[in-house]
Design a protein around this nucleic acid. Structure first.
Lengths: 215, 215, 215, 215
DNA sequence: ACGTAAGCGAGACGGTACGTCAGGTCTTAGG
DNA sequence: CCTAAGACCTGACGTACCGTCTCGCTTACGT
């Protein structure tokens, strides 16, 4: 049955020729029936770069796919929404980047951590990822839930440590911790969402209030 | 070749039928070479209603035009960006809705004002407008500037009154007012942007911290 | 989940730069709130050309839009399905191209008309359009109905004339006309769908059978 | 960063649950280094069923693989193109299903055979397979050649018998056989490709014309 | 008897095209 | 000069399949 497969052979030949002809900087084929970490990296790198280049407004899955040399479906397979992509992006950058300080009192610790965080946001596309995530959450219940219920608690861990130490060391009332944590979050959101994450000299004073520092 | 475009004609026919069937919010022709205030109202009403219906995600100029029975260019002429429309929307709603309380101490005043504001946000599309404006500002420099430099100072006037009274009456340090105001703003942003503007009983305590109330 | 777009101003600037930079053979803006015949022409020309280049297999709305310099939504607005586009394409080409012969007897008339039709199909992408329409109809009820109920009766008009003349002149039994017409249609479909529309010398004999010619 | 890809994991989980829930048409492992006839059956059955369910438009290798519980590469290994699969499908079904009638005259034989064939097409997915193969052939040279040069001659064998008998018995001119055969083929193609394979009472008359019956 | 070659399910991969939505621009026609 | 209307191009959306690839496994066959 020699001619039965002619079509397939023709198609294969064409595909091969095309693959040879195109410059194709790097073609990442599948590595079998499991996730290709190279692809994951390429996508996150591209997303990071795009966010840095164009900001949230210019951010699109389409363009990420283009830059990553990835197919759109590949992206949607692993990050079904933009929000997921932002979270992944943020998680990738921030990990362990900001040390949990121990300067002897809560206000100083908060100020140090806050300023480190701001520096991170300023110098790193992850700041843009965070802003994008918040923006996304304003019109998308799933994104909001991702932000509020998964992303936030996770990223707040260092703060909980700081406040716990404040309770032990500085005599902070445990019952007040949630309110003070909310204030810290809100303050930071306000600053980052209005593009004001440079130290204007007010951070220390603000942190003293949040810390309940009466000195 | 008259019947070649039948499909298009069908579409047009459907559109016409729908236009006829819908209550058709009166046909507003031009009123000459000046702005038609009826149109402005119709657009803002439609925007408000749409925001209430679909939220920020479902908000589009296209749909506003549809509901308002207005042409898209008409909308773009007067509100060149979504942000402008949000600001107009918000400015239209909030005015004078929330009384400036005077309950004898700053913490109580802040709590009362905050809860009133939240109630307003819950019951009024303007809350959605605000969230939309923040989202918009994350990818749009003009919207950000509008939000930060025009909208925010304007809406903060009652707070300034409250804090000024706090200085006079409760002995609040004048130097601390900006920081405390920032905390109040941030707290409110955090709550509204995460969809948490119901009183969960934590507001009073939080306001006491912001007010610097040591009782 | 609509994305938040950049400032209109940014977009405008980018668009302008692109418009200036690209050679852009022709930019067709709207000509107001009515159909632009230039666009219609450009689309049909592009479709025709694409069909000639790549055949039915390589035919896509996407590529037509690309070649026509038209937006996909514009194409979908006027030709909601590929079938509509094929019909329009065919209608545009065939009109009045094939004269209705009168050679004295039905068999000769049919042969002449058939060979003219084949010549038209050979030299003109409309032949491809017809094949595409049939292919489309095999998996799409709407396309099938378009083909069977609108396209076919219309294109068969000349044949009806020929057969009517056969009844009057050659004594063809009127009751047999539908069956003979079916045979003519079927014969032509078979030939065009198998890519056999060159005259191999069998047409005259076949048409004599269809015409019921006993000579 | 283990929890960053939760979305993907959720998708996988869902997929697993579905895999568990579906009856899972038995897991066919390899049976060594030769073709597994169970797999072949499963694929052809699935293809047949899918064609019956969804028609040519809904037919995809992907879905066949899904239903057959087969890997896509397995399918591509044995049937490199859709056309091959269609041919295999049709070849599998039709064999010997339609008896070659002998009713005393050619017209009657043709009518009987045609109606039997139509009945077969109506009740059997092979009809859909044939339509699919024709559609495929409109954009695929290999499929066309398959259809024209292999499939058609093979399936026409019974007709040749009928016509040969017509020559012997009914005095049909041998020179006219090819033309009359073409007419029969064309008529049937036209009917099946327009979804008109119910006997509307015109078949007998049409077959008389094809048979050259002058009674 | 055992290594190897081939078949197998699975599913990720880069792609192309789908059909839809909205964005912002443009022009008409009319008041 | 404003207004409603709606066509236009653009570009992104999220989905379906395409055909290829590699994995990890199973089994028969040749050495």
């Amino acid at each position: 049955m020699p001619d039965v497969h002619a079509a397939g052979e023709i198609r294969r030949t064409v595909a091969m020729r095309e693959r040879i002809m195109t410059p194709s900087p790097r073609r990442r084929a599948s590595i079998g029936s499991r996730r290709n970490p190279e692809t994951e990296s390429a996508v996150l790198d591209a997303a990071r770069e795009l966010l840095a280049d164009k900001g949230y407004a210019g951010f699109s899955i389409e363009e990420v796919a283009r830059r990553a040399g990835a197919g759109k479906p590949t992206i949607y397979r692993w990050w079904p929404t933009k929000a997921d992509l932002f979270v992944a992006l943020y998680g990738r950058e921030k990990t362990a980047a900001i040390p949990v300080p121990d300067l002897g009192n809560l206000a100083a610790d908060l100020a140090r951590y806050t300023l480190d965080l701001w520096a991170f946001w300023r110098t790193n596309p992850a700041g843009g990822a965070f802003r994008g995530l918040v923006a996304e959450a304003q019109g998308n219940e799933a994104a909001l839930s991702l932000l509020r219920d998964r992303f936030l608690p996770e990223r707040l861990e260092p703060l909980r440590i700081l406040f716990a130490r404040g309770v032990d060391r500085d005599g902070l009332a445990p019952a007040e911790v949630p309110a003070r944590l909310s204030l810290w979050i809100g303050f930071n959101w306000f600053r980052v969402l209005t593009g004001q994450v440079e130290d204007d000299g007010t951070v220390a004073a603000t942190m003293r209030i949040i810390a309940g520092d009466r000195s």
